[in-house]
Amino acid sequence: MTPTDKPQSPAASPARREFLRQGGLAAAGALVLAGGLTLVSRRPAAARTPALAGAQGLPARVYTGPYDTKEPMSALGDITGYNNYYEFGLDKSDPARNAGTLKTRPWTVQIGGLVRKPQTVDIDTLQSWFPLEDRLYRMRCVEGWSLVIPWMGFPLAALLRRIEPGSGAKYVQFTSLADPAQMPGVQGAVLNWPYTEALRLDEAMNPLTLLAVGLDGKVLPNQNGAPLRLVAPWKYGFKNIKAITHITLTAEQPRTTWSIAAPDEYGFYANVNPAVDHPRWSQASERRIGELSRRPTLPFNGYGEQVAALYSGLDLRRNF
């Protein structure tokens, strides 16, 4: 490293000018480097939903029902600002930023397949059929983090009883909206659009299984799956399909989006199970959003009492 490029001028003024020039170049270089590095690595934090920001951390409702967890609710800012919803972008803060473009009214849900009363129903009519219930549930993402979320909705079982599954119906399939005009993420081919999910009929009939239309007593924010989303709290979060447009009863096990994308990593059942690792990471523990240390993950996300019987005799290691 010989500093041959520095002219050793005896005159003070040109040397000074050269010194300043070099200094300016170095400063500019440092800024370009820092800026470039920041550009590729930094993601701005999640935008909090202004409408809900006032009630952050304090539930508007009282959650003491038989299905409610005793654990404290997560901050609403985290529930509405940290979402996996690839239709609106891949970063967790994208849905809060981008889901405003989704039009949730008018909205119709097509109910069909092996049912005695197939029908297309408006979302407001659909939710007027049932009393809405508040449920404070844990939500465990397959990525190893969790939230405690105050859903409002109605049991899927109530809807299924009303539309009357036909004989031979064994599965309930759900389909999301996939409209590139409203959902910027659908323009990319990250996943097989539209997003589809499914439950076995007995899982769908379980009293824990909810179709949510609200959050802490208010209308469900778009980034959380408005106007209608599935909540099966003993399964990994990706089972909980958002913005549902179709509910179809089938005889055969439907294919589901993440198990198509990576069949060795995401199965049909996707029950929360600390004993069965994701091929690339452990599922033994999780980070509750808002906490710095991790906590152990519970079998069936702590809902074993209600759902473990559904899987007696099933090899959960194979049927992950």
């Binding site: 170095a26 400063a27 270089g29 440092a30 480097l33 820092a34 590095l37 920041t38 690595s41 930094r42």
Partner: peptide, 13 residues
């Protein structure tokens, strides 16, 4: 040159 590079690289930290 070197200190400027170090500063630029460490600013993100």
């Amino acid at each position: 040159m070197v200190p400027a590079t170090a500063i630029g690289a460490l600013l993100p930290l």
